[in-house]
Structures are given as C-alpha cells and as structure tokens.
Design a protein around this nucleic acid. Structure first.
Lengths: 209, 209
DNA sequence: GAGGCCAGGATTGCATGCAATCGGCGCTAG
DNA sequence: CTAGCGCCGATTGCATGCAATCCTGGCCTC
C-alpha cells in the first residue's frame, strides 16, 4: 500500500468516518476508480485494507459496502471503548506537550462555542480530539485496538441523537479533560473520559441505534 | 478479497501465527506468488490485509516484512490483553455449548499431557484455545480488537521462554478455565484468565523480549 | 396473473506488462 | 585506502485486459 492506494484508502476512510458516505452504501470499484482518478488496482487494495479495519464489508463477487452496526454491536463497542479509551487518556496525559495541549484546548473551545450547530464540523473535531489522546498514548497496539473499535458511525449517529442536555455535558467534558491534562492529572482525565463515554452510551442506548 | 487472495492471506496468516515464518523475515511478492501458485495481484491484496491486521509491516517501494515487536510493545500488548481477554472469557462462558466445552477440554488435556514437548503443537493448540473463547464471546468488535492485539510472536516467543514452573502453571490454568466454564461460573473463568495472563507476562518481562 | 428461467449487461477476480523506485556494486577522486 | 557517485539488476506500484460471476429484465409456462 503506497502512494495511490494509500491515498485512496485515506480518502475513503475520511469520507466514511466523517459520515459523508452513509452506512450500507455500495462502493463500486469502477465508480471509485473514476472518482479518485486511479485505476481499479489501488482501489481494490484500499478496500481490502478498509475491510480489515472494519470500515467496509466485502462480499465475494459482490463488491464492497460501507459497514453498518446493529444496536447490540454498538453497545458492545461502548463496552470496549470504556475499557480502552480511559486507559489511553491516562497514558497520554504525561506525554502531552504544550503544542498539543493548545490544540486540544482549541478544539474543545471551538466545539463548545459552536454548541453542536455544525454537526459535520463537530463530528470531525470530536474525532480529532479523541484521536489526539489515542495518538499521544504512544502505543501502536493500543491505537490499533481502538481503531478496530472506534468506528465512524458510532461517533456520527451518536451526535445526531444527542439531547441538548447530553450534548452540553459532552462538550463540557472535553473542556474538563483538557484542564485535567494541563494539570497533569491523569486520574482526573481518565475519570472524565469515563463519564464522557457513559454519557454517550446512555444517549445511544435509550434511543434507536 | 476473495478466493485466491483470501486463501493466500489465510496461508500467510497461518504461517506467521504459527511461527513458521520468523519475525522480520522479508516477504517478496514474486517469491510468495511462486510459492502459493497465484499471481502477484492477490498476494498484494493479502499483504495489504495482513498489514492492516498488524501482522506484517509494509514499507513503500521496499516490500513487506513480518512484523516484530519491541519489549515495550509486548508489555503494552499484555496490558491490553488483560483488559480485553478476561472480559471475553466472561462473556463466552454462558454461551459455550457442550460441543465446544468438549473441544476446549480436549485441547487443555492434550496440552497438559504433552507438557510442552511439542512446541509447535502447543502454540497451535493454545491459539485455538484462546480463539475459541474469543469466538464464543460472540462480539465481532471484541474479536476485532483482540485480533489487532493478540499477535503471533507474542504467544510464540512466549512459550519458548517459559520456565518449567511457569509452563506448568499455564497448562493447569487451561484446565481450570474449562472447569470454570463447565460450571458456568463466569467470575471464576475470568479470574483464571487474568492469572493466566499475569503468569505469561511475568515470564516475558523478566527475560529478553 | 404469478412464478420460474434464461439471456444480456455489468461487475468483480486475477494475470500480465510496463514504468518508477530502490539497493548493491564498481569506479573514480582525493 | 576511504569516501562519494553513478549505473544496473531486482522489486514494487499501477494500469489494463480477459475470464468468471452476479444481477436485472423480459419471456415463457402453468
């Protein structure tokens, strides 16, 4: 996987994770090849990878579709995030530099100020916020496991379902997490992340899926 | 990923997970294509997937190598297994049928009887043993996360480093886990798995890597 | 009128060919 | 004798072509 294929994979990943391509959408090789201006070979390679990451589902001789999740699976995904992501945050806190803290702060403030008006922007900022902690934890295996779990649709469908109260709580959690990180208090940050995820899970489970 | 590519991926996975191909080994596309009797295209697709799974490392224009792990990463991998695998066992226990219990029992007994003489056989049986619990947990996201974490070399290098005492404990843990599962006692099984992993980790950390 | 079947078009799966890049070796200069 | 440069074989990356499979619609049969 290199240049063209890598780029194609990244583009698709981005589009799926941001919600630009809906769950269940069919992904034809020829169509993608035309759209991304490469031949089908790198497209196939990209789809292969995304399938291994769990973002798309491949059916033999029947092409690829953007993956979708049942409510049970979403519940399970939160269970796993609860076991991994607070841990990741704890590991990350002592490793965050001033640059990263500033960026996290910026993201948290921006999300809070916008208040969930711009849903697409929120999804993206939220993804980057969580991603930065995972990255900063500095453990490829941990990052891999979380990538296998933290799927787009979760984050995305999620925000669409938030009540105003849940949304407010969520946005304030981000800010609090940055404060904890800046204070160098891993316990605190970990606890906030845990609360953050329970809040998200409750929102999700009470409703559709 | 379908027929030839799928088969190639499975073959390679098997060879890597069983330790037949050592960590760091170079995987040339042409060589693999010749050995597995397919063209380079499905090989490339297979390597792509295995890279996403973390079993091989792809360097642009420089081919693929079987992944290897630093001691820090191995430590981290155990940390993650400890967070996921006991949970998986707990979920699995109430879902195990008589057939599966019998198979688990057979594996545990066989490993115990052999006592670590046949290292390759042990690695394989151990992999199947753990895999059955993960499978039985019935959660694709959990299985995915654990796959991203439970790499071959870990299990493999591991057994090679076991002291006789640690080996004995490990093999008895398997038997005890089956007893717990048969008793339908998820708490028990979970606790045994936790002990099992701590035992493995201690073995690994005290020594090289 | 409904259900099954067959043909045509579309799509995937794989093999092959060619351009681009990399690594190793020998050559030259200092 | 050593360090740096450039060429050449080897390998990867991608595009294209062809065979196999699948889906869709229209038709025939009951």
């Amino acid at each position: 996987m290199r240049q063209a294929a890598e780029q194609a994979a990244q583009s698709l990943r981005e589009e799926i994770l941001s919600g630009a391509i809906a769950s269940g959408t069919r992904l034809g090789e020829a169509e993608l090849a035309g759209r991304l201006r490469v031949s089908r070979t790198p497209i196939r390679e990209a789809l292969s990878r995304l399938a291994a990451e769990g973002l798309v589902e491949l059916q033999p001789n029947r092409g690829a579709r953007v993956a979708s999740w049942s409510e049970d699976q979403l519940r399970e995904i939160f269970e796993l995030r609860l076991r991994l992501e607070p841990y990741a945050v704890r590991q990350a806190v002592p490793r965050l530099g001033e640059d990263q803290l500033a960026e996290l702060d910026g993201l948290a403030q921006r999300m809070l100020r916008d208040g969930g008006q711009d849903l697409a922007g929120l999804v993206d900022a939220n993804r980057r916020f969580h991603g930065m902690f995972i990255e900063a934890a500095g453990s490829p295996p941990l990052a891999g496991a979380l990538k296998a779990v933290t799927h787009a649709a979760v984050v995305h469908q999620n925000f669409a379902d938030y009540t105003p109260d849940a949304m407010r709580r969520s946005l304030h959690h981000h800010v609090e997490m940055v404060a904890a990180a800046r204070a160098g208090d891993g316990d605190w940050a970990e606890a906030v992340m845990r609360a953050h995820l329970y809040n998200a899970r409750a929102t999700m489970i009470g409703r559709s899926g």
